[in-house]
C-alpha cells in the first residue's frame, strides 16, 4: 500500500534540500569555506567596528582594545560554526552548530549595538553625546546609586540580547525546556563575556560586577520566561 509515490509536502522538501545541501557543502574545498568565514568576519567587524570606533575613538584604552579583539574572535568562531557543513534545518529542541552560531552572533551584535546606543552603561562617552537612555541612568543613579545602575544595566543588556537572539532562532526554541534554557544561557553568557571583562578590568566598575551579573541572570530569565509563556 505504501509503495505508491505520494506528492512531497513542504516539510519533506525542506528536509531533502537541507540534507542535500549539507552533502554538497561537505564536498566543497576547505579553502572556500575558510574564505567565506574570513570574508564574513571582516564584513561584520567593519560594520559594527566602524561606528564603534567613530563614537568612542577617544576612549579606546587597552581594555577596549582587548574587548574588540574578543569580538573579532567571536565573529570568527561564530562564522566557523555557521559555515560548518550541516543540514540547515531549524527544529524545535535541536541546537545544531548553525543555530548556536546564529544566536551567538546575534546576541554579540545586539550587545555591541546596546553599548553604541547607551554607552553610559559601560562608562563610555560617545563623541556625539548621543545617549537616549541617559535620563534613565541618571534617575537610577539618584535612586539606588551605582549598584542599582549596574544591576539594571546587566538586566537590560541581557534581556535585549536574549530576546533578539531568541527571535533569531525562534523555530529551534518553540518550546524552551530546562536543557534548552541551559544551552541558551551558556550562549548568552559567552556573548556577554567581553562586557564582563570590561567591568572586571576597570577599577571603577569592578566592585559592582556582582550586581551586573545578577541583572544579567534576571534579564535572561525574563526573556526565556516570556518565550515559555508564548509557547
Amino acid at each position: 500500500m505504501n509503495s505508491v509515490q505520494q506528492p512531497r509536502s513542504n516539510v519533506q522538501d525542506q528536509v531533502l534540500r537541507a540534507i542535500q545541501g549539507a552533502l554538497r557543502e561537505e564536498k566543497e574545498p576547505r579553502s572556500k569555506r575558510i574564505l567565506k568565514i574570513l570574508t564574513s568576519t571582516i564584513a561584520l567587524s567593519t560594520l559594527v567596528g566602524f561606528p564603534f570606533w567613530i563614537s568612542f575613538r577617544g576612549e579606546m584604552n587597552w581594555i577596549w582594545n582587548i574587548t574588540a579583539g574578543f569580538w573579532v574572535l567571536y565573529f570568527l568562531l561564530g562564522f566557523a560554526f555557521y559555515f560548518k557543513p550541516q543540514p540547515r534545518l531549524m527544529v524545535s529542541g535541536l541546537f545544531g552548530p548553525f543555530v548556536i552560531a546564529r544566536m551567538f552572533l546575534v546576541s554579540t551584535v545586539a550587545t555591541i549595538a546596546e553599548i553604541l546606543i547607551c554607552p553610559s552603561f559601560v562608562f563610555l562617552s560617545s563623541s556625539y553625546e548621543w545617549n537616549p537612555l541617559s535620563p534613565l541612568t541618571e534617575r537610577l543613579m539618584d535612586v539606588g546609586g551605582m549598584s542599582l545602575c549596574m544591576g539594571f544595566c546587566g538586566f537590560l543588556f541581557a534581556f535585549i540580547a536574549s530576546a533578539i537572539g531568541l527571535v533569531s532562532i525562534r523555530k529551534a526554541v518553540k518550546a524552551v525546556d530546562q536543557k534548552s534554557a541551559l544551552i541558551l544561557f551558556s550562549i548568552l553568557a559567552a556573548s556577554q563575556f567581553p562586557v564582563f571583562f570590561v567591568q572586571v578590568a576597570s577599577e571603577d566598575l569592578r566592585p559592582f560586577v556582582g550586581y551586573w551579573v545578577f541583572g544579567v541572570i534576571n534579564g535572561f530569565a525574563l526573556a526565556v520566561g516570556l518565550k515559555r509563556l508564548r509557547s
Partner: peptide
C-alpha cells in the same frame, strides 16, 4: 560516503513511509 544521489533515492523510498 557523501553520495547525494544515493541519499535522494533512499529519501524517496522512506520519506512517505516514515511520515505515515
Amino acid at each position: 560516503y557523501g553520495n547525494e544521489q544515493a541519499f535522494s533515492t533512499l529519501f524517496e523510498r522512506y520519506s512517505s513511509k516514515l511520515g505515515s
